[in-house]
């Protein structure tokens, strides 16, 4: 998948002839993923009578929201041309920090903030190691993945932290007009992050670095600072996801957030982000996350076992990128 994606980008290098293609590829990609989402939805609506029920749809949104929040951070990282494998561990660490503080009597809001700050600090460390230490993102965040997970196990001694205050459960378990709190948070975060990505200098710098780091540097972009910001953002969103998850379960499990990094990467890639950098959108990533969410939910309703679901999702990930590769070639 990774290689295919990179090859795809390389093969896009132009020749001297004028080609009548504009910026349409990006829209196409989003459109393709969106069509996939609709088709999947249509299929399950016919295949299972319970799929289209409001409760089930809200359930899909709820199931997807936490991974989607993590995936938004991952999208920034991937557009920048990096990868963040540590988000699952960071989510667990933030959750555990907040839970541990609450059980030792700290006010909820302070615990939440400190938990998120923990995520930011992990992200900053990632960014500093990558930009100033010149360590490849894959290695640096692989290291952080182990470190953060290890820290979780050390703090909790391997057992879940429970006995959290009831009112803390609102973040993950509450609803507003019947819509689950995590879904609302996901929507708010998506909007903010999409606007930052598309309309701020920071966002433009992220695209520029991912497309061509040397050129971005020579254009006066502060590459190191931007990278630091990107990984801090990813850490922060992982932290927020961890807090919501802990709140939903009203307990912080040391194994929480496992495989989030892979789900997040998959969501971004299905949504059209390129692992070689410079390409991707928040909307695309949300679509990618929901494609996986609907697939899991729909297959559940049809009684397909969890094991087979894994296989289906694997095929979707590779298939989505493959279709995109074919289209790039046809161009």
């Amino acid at each position: 998948m990774l290689l295919e994606n990179i090859m795809k980008r390389k093969s896009e290098l132009p020749d001297s002839g004028a080609k009548p293609t504009g910026n349409r590829s990006v829209n196409f990609q989003k459109l393709g993923a969106f069509l996939g989402l609709i088709l999947l939805g249509l299929f399950f609506s016919f295949a299972s009578s319970s799929f289209l029920q409001v409760n089930n749809l809200l359930n899909i949104a709820l199931q997807t929201s936490i991974v989607a929040i993590v995936a938004i951070g991952q999208t920034y990282v991937i557009i920048k041309g990096g990868i963040d494998l540590s988000v699952g561990s960071i989510a667990a660490l933030s959750g555990v920090i907040a839970a541990q503080m609450m059980t030792s009597g700290s006010p909820i809001w302070i615990a939440v903030i400190v938990g998120i700050v923990g995520g930011i600090v992990c992200g900053l460390l990632n960014g500093a190691i990558i930009s100033y230490g010149n360590i490849p993102p894959f290695i640096a965040t692989l290291g952080m993945m182990g470190i953060a997970r290890g820290a979780v196990l050390v703090i909790t001694d391997g057992t879940p932290v429970s006995g959290l205050p009831r009112s803390y459960g609102v973040l993950g378990g509450g609803t507003v007009f019947g819509i689950p709190m995590p879904v609302i948070l996901m929507v708010i975060i998506s909007i903010i992050m999409a606007v930052i990505l598309s309309r701020s200098r920071f966002g433009r710098s992220v695209y520029a670095i991912g497309s061509n780091e040397k050129a971005a540097f020579l254009s006066g972009i502060n590459v190191n600072k931007t990278k630091l910001g990107v990984y801090a953002l990813s850490g922060m969103l992982a932290g927020i996801a961890g807090i919501i998850l802990t709140s939903r379960l009203i307990s912080a499990a040391p194994t929480a957030g496992q495989n989030y990094e892979l789900d997040a990467i998959a969501a971004a890639v299905i949504g059209g982000a390129s692992l070689s950098g410079g390409v991707g959108t928040i909307v695309g990533t949300l679509i990618g996350a929901f494609i996986m969410g609907i697939l899991r939910n729909g297959l559940n309703l049809l009684g397909v076992s969890y094991y087979w679901q894994q296989i289906a999702i694997g095929i979707v990930i590779v298939g989505a990128v493959y279709i995109d590769t074919l289209r790039q070639k046809a161009k």
Binding site: E12, N23, A215, G220
Partner: peptide, 17 residues
Amino acid sequence: KDGLMLSINIKDNIMIS
């Protein structure tokens, strides 16, 4: 190699500096 961001549009290439 050093001057352009090829996967990015004309506007954002000009604006980046």
